[in-house]
Design a protein around this nucleic acid. Structure first.
Lengths: 170, 170
DNA sequence: CCCCATAGCTGCGAAATCCGTGACTATTGA
DNA sequence: TCAATAGTCACGGATTTCGCAGCTATGGGG
């Protein structure tokens, strides 16, 4: 069973030789994804009616999309409501190889989101914490203590204005 | 998809008062959320068995969590796989009131994530685009053209290393 | 203290959904 | 031409979902 991280494209090594994994999803699968982006529990039959496919066909395509890691169906929550009151985006500058630092950040439970970037930061990390003390500890004691980390800059969240999951739905 | 907050609450962006919204979530609901974070389509009966509740009770609590906007069950995808090849985090500095700028960004389909921050940026926005031209157009023609935007700084994504939806699961 | 209202849980069918399977149709490549 | 593969459909039986009625606590009024 795979756990909740998308990203690992690696799953099927043979698919990488096509160079483009997007080739594996057609317009119909995209339509199925859109349906499930509106409601992750929508019945297969209803999806089938919407996209013009039988219930079984939808079910098999969904299973394949899940297996391939193209999509996952999960509950997402509002951190504030679930007891995480402090969030921040942290920009990081690294000396030398980025990978070990990125790996270390990935291993931290508080780091919800880790991305390598071009620009004045090498890495950007979204940190989710319970309170100020927790946030301080993570940034100051754990992230900045990682070997290779040259400097960090923090952007504490004041208000989340938008957040969607509607790609492909445009 | 990414950062997980709910947010769909965009409808009433004025709901800044959270009193203590966490008071409505007890340990059992948290356990239910954890179950659905592992698999958004897990049957109510299976969840009930895991958290020690009847199927009907789980169903009612899930429905309530959805209605309250505490949680949503959705499909999340890897943007690269679905045809969006360029993503960037954009830090923005604003002159005067942040709200109108934030609202305008929220209205843009390409802005997946909009947050007000403390620090050297006033706003941070995640932009999801199909290609370089599209990205350039959004940042240079649309975002920077907004009245009140003083300056922007872009961080183009090179590689997404981690992305989870496991709050409360720690 | 009693009574009522509300909220939450349970159990139980009936209806709907899920899921495995086998058959059918293209498409591909030897 | 003939497999072999991938994708789809159709059809039960098992499972799940759904609506409803009943039950239990909790919390005010009166």
């Amino acid at each position: 069973m795979h756990h909740g991280v998308v990203a690992s494209r690696s799953a099927d090594s043979s698919s990488s030789r096509h160079g483009n994994s997007s080739s594996s999803i057609d317009a119909v699968s995209l339509a199925i994804i859109e349906q499930l982006q509106e409601d992750g529990r929508r019945p297969y039959a209803a999806i089938g009616k919407a996209v013009g496919l039988s219930e079984a066909a939808v079910r098999q395509r969904v299973q394949k999309l899940l297996d391939q890691g193209v999509m996952q169906i999960v509950a997402v929550t509002d951190p504030l409501t679930v007891g995480f009151r402090r969030q921040a985006m942290v920009g990081i500058n690294v000396e030398g190889d980025l990978d070990p630092v990125a790996e270390a950040l990935t291993a931290m439970a508080e780091c919800e989101y880790v991305v390598m970037t071009a620009g004045s930061f090498d890495l950007m990390v979204e940190v989710v914490c319970e309170d100020d003390d927790h946030l301080l500890e993570v940034i100051n004691k754990r992230i900045r203590a990682l070997p290779g980390v040259r400097s960090t800059e923090s952007f504490v969240y004041l208000k989340l204005k938008k957040q969607t999951y509607m790609w492909g739905t445009r």
